[in-house]
Amino acid sequence: MQRVIKDGNVQLDDWILVGQAGSSMNPAQLPEKTILPFGYIQKKSDQLPRQQNVHGVLLDGSDDIEGWGEMLVRFPLLAVSFSHFTDGRGFSLAAQLREKYGFSGDLRAMGNFLPDQMNYLSRCGFSSFHIQDSEQLEDALSGLRDFNVAYQGL
């Protein structure tokens, strides 16, 4: 179990990230609540059930999801990993998933981002946040509330 920020507070969460090592796993044997790498989804797409209510997908800013959007939005959770907090590709990826592909599930920020980016992340459509350093949980929570007004109608 890990702690994530969701709905404005800290919650326990049992999603498990399957690393690249899991790429040899048989899709039929995947445990529930596993977050699968996008590469795995691309390779095994024909073996995955059409209704996806138990798995999540891990993306990162460099992934080109052109052509995969419709499939991705069927998952209940999409995670976007930030390799570095200055790499802003994940912000636009999240906005695209929400605006362009209409994803309505849980959109999770993972990896290297700062408490100072929480407000922007949430306004780009992220709905949960995996904070690596538990000492930053409090700053991250308050970061969510850095701004109560915005010019953009997002």
Binding site: A150, Y151, Q152
Partner: peptide, 14 residues
Amino acid sequence: RQWSTLHPEFAFLP
């Protein structure tokens, strides 16, 4: 100016 100020998506461009 207003649209680009604190735009959440475009604060960490290349």
